[in-house]
Every structure is written in structure tokens, then in C-alpha cells.
Design a protein around this nucleic acid. Structure first.
Lengths: 206, 206, 206, 206
DNA sequence: TGGTAAACGAGACGGTACGTCAGGTCTTTCA
DNA sequence: TGAAAGACCTGACGTACCGTCTCGTTTACCA
């Protein structure tokens, strides 16, 4: 009766990481926040986690995968898609979340980190997966909008998302301008013109 | 007096750079193209330029300013704004240029480099200045559009640019997706809806 | 047969070593031959023997005792003392054996290994025991010589052995010179001058 | 008139070693004495010398050459050949020196070190050179003995030295026996029989 | 024949040192 | 005398073995 256990795959010796994984993840994210990705070193993570350097190298080949694991494990990148009842409302909520991501100290560091290497090194995988995952969670939003008649059935959700997200990232991280109040609404309105939203109010009840 | 000669501001005996500046710039850009920004090292630049490391450090405090100089000196980032006679045409041309920048081997490396550090380190200055400079060159485009009545006088050009550029960068560098044919037009049409452009020609005269 | 007596001590159920002892010894000696003592690692021995590292550490505290066991188990260091009928002949045979030991690939590595640490570390025990054991086997040779009148009764056999062996080791391992033909005879003649051997044949019968 | 200097080749920027060479040599020999060759680490040398590890690696590829330099620079291995007026006296003095070398704490460590690796690794060069150099310094001793008629002109000095030195090293380092009083004389007498020394006293005056 | 104790395999771990690379600084040389 | 060269310190890299430990799994004796 040893091995049947409860069914939780994590439970037995799945050995999916070092024993001190938790502490290592914490240390990684702390140091990322303190120093940025470039100055994040495996050595420092090991020391802060109270773990030997070799232990980290045993499980992750370099700092990018390590950070990737830490990010996946923590939930800082988790996305929540609100359902406000209207396309505009959903998009404003979405854009607001993006703004928060590039503004909040804890997540902006991660966002900047994902830019590091510009999609070239291993961290790029994190970025790509993150955006892909996000996209999947966002699709229902558009499906709802189509169902409500707020959006043409052949509209390209990815394009809309990229326009919105791109504008946010562009301004905050590349132009390095503050994101003023009203910015979110401007962006959404530019992409989904208000007149389209209002043209058929009856759709909302359907 | 070494530089003798004409009126090129670089050439004056103002000691604005090391004697081997040219070779250093070349080496810098070559290595950037070969290795990317992260793996661009002052050490390697010095060696390829046939110059001692200290010579570089005397003139530039770190690799970011060095790259900045190299980029300014070369003309890879120069922008040309076309005048096609219509807002849509101008924007398509503009977006096409952006696509080329993130696609072409020589410039995409630079684009990725500008993302490095996510606007945190010294290279951010390059990015910020680049986008600011670009913006100034692009403003006349919008002025013309306003004059032609294709755009409301209070429209925000920065927003339009950010939407377009953001979408391009987003897709190419963060999502790491290929930019298909027609993408440029889709982007522009999403931001400046065709129906607005065509639906009411009389607007132009107003 | 060295161990005289009946039951091979190894064979009793006294659990004097791991089950895979044989393979471990082989691996040890192979690796010693390939890499020398310094670069002989427990890790490599374990791998080649197809045994877990801990199995080795369970039985031997470190690599020196391991090597010691391996050497004792193999017979590479076994000595055979010839009886040629004359002191000179016996010594020449003896010296020849020493020369072979420091020359032959398989044993010279062992000889070098015994020098490692210069009598300081645990391997020194091997060396000391080896030479002590050798000496005991050599003593009869001198007893015979004394009986034959070739050697004064109070002559010091250890000194003679050390002179001969020392010269061989000195030249081969420290001076790193080749041992030419005739070297053995020169050494023996220097220690047991021929004139003493031949000048008074009547001594033999006395 | 800066550079012409006195003619000492060491004096100018011959750059034959790091600036802190002196301290590095000291640290090396100290640590050798404290820990033995095996446990001598470049890391520790660097730390004790107050020098960075890389500085050492810049000048010496590994610890063996480093130790070699340190030994050459210090004079611990210097040999002095006495002239006592007789072959026996000279050899006794010589053997005494050897005994001192393998006995004295400061030099015995070096002697043991030279055995390390058994003439296989780079330290072997130290040993070989040391013995070769010694030999050259010892040759006059034999020349004098030949001139005095104490030694046949065709006698092999190397053999005599190897017999004496070998016996000393053998007993002290391999057999690990104490060198009792009288040992030196026994060794010399065994190699250069007293009767030969005394047979023709008149030679001495010639 | 079935229980049990020794031996074993698997593999993670903290640790020391390795030898290397690059970042910057400081000192010396030289034109 | 100021630019260049070169030596230097610092910090981190990623790797190899070390010797230890825990935890299940054989193996083999023997009861």
C-alpha cells in the first residue's frame, strides 16, 4: 500500500525540483525585483535561499529557466479576465490590467525582464508562452462580444490585443512616459470606436 | 592637428573620441549583429577594433553609451517619412518601415537591443531618444492629415503611433510571430478605420 | 601463495568487502593506469565498476585505502626472490626486478603512485608495507650469502637493499633517466664490489 | 636616462611575473609547508598573498609551475658543496645535506612534494632540474677525488650519487624510517669502501 | 520458505576548488 | 603630458569531485 496514494501527482517522489524550491523561487523573485534581470545572479539566489550553488545548477541550466520556473510557480503573471457585460468594458479592464503590470513595482520588473534579450535568449520563451497563454484566456471575451453583436465575427482578436497591449508597453517601457489617467480609455476607444459600441444598444440585452 | 579639414563637427580637434573611433564603431555594430546586445562585450569590441580595453573605457563609461554612439554614428536608425498624399498611405508607409526595422537582420538586432533592460539601464536613453526623435519627424504627417481633413484636429498622434508601432513590436518581438503580408494594412485600418476615411469625403474640405 | 593456509580469508562470510569488489578493483587499477594517482577519482571508479559511489565509501574511507586494497588484491606488487647461488646473482636478479617495476607500464604507475604524497598521506602505508614485506622476503637471500661466506655476518641487508633500490628509483623516477643496459650490474657491483666476491673464492666454502 | 639601467636583466620591465610575486612565493611555500602539495590550492595562495586568483592564473598555468617558480626563487633548494679534502669527507658532507633535506621540516615538505605525481606531472620538471643542477655542482667533488687518486678516472659519479641519495630518500620517505646517527657514514662507506680510501694515503698529498 | 539484516542503488545535498570570462580601475610606458 | 597598453582586483560563471545522507530495494542467510 505504498504507492497508490491520493492521486496528487506532486505527492510522491516526482522530484520536480530541489527540496528548497520554495525558498529558491522566493529568493529569485526578490532579487529580480531588487536588481533587475541583468544583475540577477545564480550565486546570489543560492546564497539568499540558503542553498548551495550546485543545487541550483543541478536543476536549472541557467538563470533564464530558473526565473521561468519561479515566475510560473508564483502567480504574479496570472491573468484574470473580467466579464463586464460589454466589449468596451472588458477591454478597458484588460488594458487596465496591462497598465498595472507595467506600472506595479513587482510586475514591472518582470515585464522589463521579459523584454531583456529582446526575444532572443531563453527568457523569450517565458514571454512567448505568457502572451500565448494570456491570449487563450482572452478569447472568450471576444467570443462574447461577437455573440452580443459588438464585434464582427471575422474580427481578429489578436490584432486588437496587440494594438492595446502594444500601445501600453510602447509608451510605458520604450517611450518611458507616464501613463496618465484616461490613457486606458483612449486606447480602447481608438481600437473599438465608441460609435460602434453604441450603434446598437439593444445587443447588450441579448 | 590631426583632423585638419573641413567642418564636420566630429573632426575638430575637440577630442570627441578615440583615434580609432571608426574601427570601434564598426566592431561594436558587427558584434552586436553577431551576438546580440547581451553578449556584446567591451572586451570583444576592443579586441576586434585592435584597441586596448581602457581606450574604450576612457571615452564611454559602459557598453550602452558606446552602442549609443555607434548607432548615432552609423545611420541605421535614420527615419524617412514619406508623403503619399493620404493619411492611410502615410501610415502604411510608416508601419512598413517599422516592420522592416524589426525584420531586417541589421536593424532587428538593434531593435531587440533597445528592449534590453526594459527601459531601465542606460540603453534606455537610446530608445527614448530614438522614439522621441521619430515622433518629431512624424508630426508633419499628422499635420498634413488634419489639414486634409482626414483627422480631427484634436486627435492624438502619439497614440496613433503607439498603437501602430506597439502592435508591430508586440507581435514581432514579444509574441515572436512572423509578420504576414497584409498585416501592415490591417493594423492601419484598425487604427484609422477605412469607413472613416472613405465614408464621408466631404469631410476633407471642411 | 602468499596467504599460506587454508581458507582464503576473503572467502569467509566475514563480509570483507562489497559484492562487486572484483570489478571495483579492476576499475581502480585501470583508472590508475590511465590517469595516474592524482587524477584517480572515486567517482570514476564507481562509474566504471557499475557501482554506486556510496558503495565504495561504505567500504573504504578514501581513495588511498581503496587503492591499497586493489593493489593487495591484484598481484602486481608480488615479489619473487630468485636463488641463483651467488650473492651477486641474487642481487642482480633483485635489481632487475626493481628495474622492471619502475619501467613496466603496469607497475610503474603503481610505483609512481606510491611516491605520491611523499609518504605523508594514507597511501604511504602501502609504500611502507610494501617495502617492509619485500624486505622480509629478501632477508633469506642475505642469510644464504652469509652462509656462503660472501657477506660479513654483521652486514646490514637493509642498507644494501636501500642502496640498490634507491639508485634504481632515483634514476628512473626522480632523475627521469632511462635505465640503460648494464645499469643493474653497475649498481650491484658498486654495492658488492666484484673484487670482494672473487678475490677469495675459498671464502665460499668456509 | 630611464631605461638603460645597470644590466641586471631582472631589473626593468621584463615582466617576468606579477608585481606581488614575492608575496605569492612566500604564500606558496608557507602553504606547502602547512598542508603538503596535494592540499596546496591556488585559491588559498591567492588569498594569503592578498592577490586575486586570476593574477596567479595569468602567470602560471597551474600550481605545479607556480611551486616551481617559488622554489627557484627561494633558495631552500640551494646546494653547497663542501671541500673537506677527502672523498669520504666530501661524500659524508653531501649525504648529511641530503639527510637534512629530507628531515628538516622546511625542506622535507619540498622533497615530498617533488615525489608527488611520481615524476609524471609538471612538478617532475622541478625534480629533474633540481637533481641535474645538483649533479653539476657535485661533479668537481669527484674531479678532485680523481685528482687525488681516491677514485678511478672512469668511475661514474652519477652512480655514486644515486646510490647515496637513493638510500637516503628510500629510507626516509619510502620506508619512512628514522635516519639514525651513523647512517650517513654507513652509506658512504658502503659505496666508497674504507679500504679503498686508506689504501694509498700518499695520494692525498699529490 | 519466509523473515530479516546487511548490502546496495539512486540521487540530492552542502561544500571546496577549479579554471575562465568580463567588468572596471590603476600604473606604467611611450610618442 | 596625455593617450595607449597592460597589469590588476572583483565578481560571477559553470563544472568536477568530494564525502554525506536518506530512502527504498535487493540479496542471502537462517530459523
Amino acid at each position: 500500500m505504498r504507492g497508490h496514494s491520493t492521486g496528487n501527482p506532486q505527492e510522491r517522489g516526482t522530484s520536480r525540483g530541489p527540496r528548497a524550491a520554495e525558498r529558491i523561487y522566493e529568493a529569485t523573485l526578490e532579487l529580480l525585483a531588487e536588481r533587475g534581470y541583468q544583475d540577477l545572479t545564480v550565486e546570489a539566489v543560492a546564497e539568499r535561499a540558503g542553498v548551495n550553488k550546485t543545487t541550483i545548477y543541478r536543476w536549472w541550466p541557467s538563470k533564464a529557466p530558473l526565473l521561468r520556473s519561479a515566475l510560473l510557480h508564483s502567480r504574479v503573471l496570472d491573468v484574470e479576465i473580467a466579464d463586464t457585460g460589454s466589449l468596451r468594458g472588458d477591454l478597458v479592464a484588460l488594458a487596465g490590467q496591462m497598465v498595472r503590470m507595467v506600472s506595479d513595482q513587482r510586475t514591472s520588473v518582470v515585464a522589463r525582464a521579459m523584454l531583456s534579450g529582446g526575444g532572443q535568449d531563453e527568457l523569450a520563451v517565458v514571454a512567448r508562452d505568457f502572451f500565448a497563454d494570456r491570449l487563450e484566456r482572452e478569447r472568450p471575451l471576444f467570443a462574447r462580444a461577437v455573440a452580443r453583436g459588438e464585434l464582427a465575427a471575422d474580427a481578429d482578436p489578436v490584432l486588437l490585443i496587440d494594438l492595446i497591449a502594444g500601445a501600453v508597453w510602447m509608451r510605458a517601457l520604450l517611450r518611458q512616459l507616464p501613463l496618465e489617467k484616461g490613457f486606458v480609455e483612449s486606447v480602447v476607444d481608438a481600437v473599438v470606436p465608441p460609435r460602434l459600441q453604441e450603434s446598437d444598444p439593444s445587443n447588450r440585452s441579448s
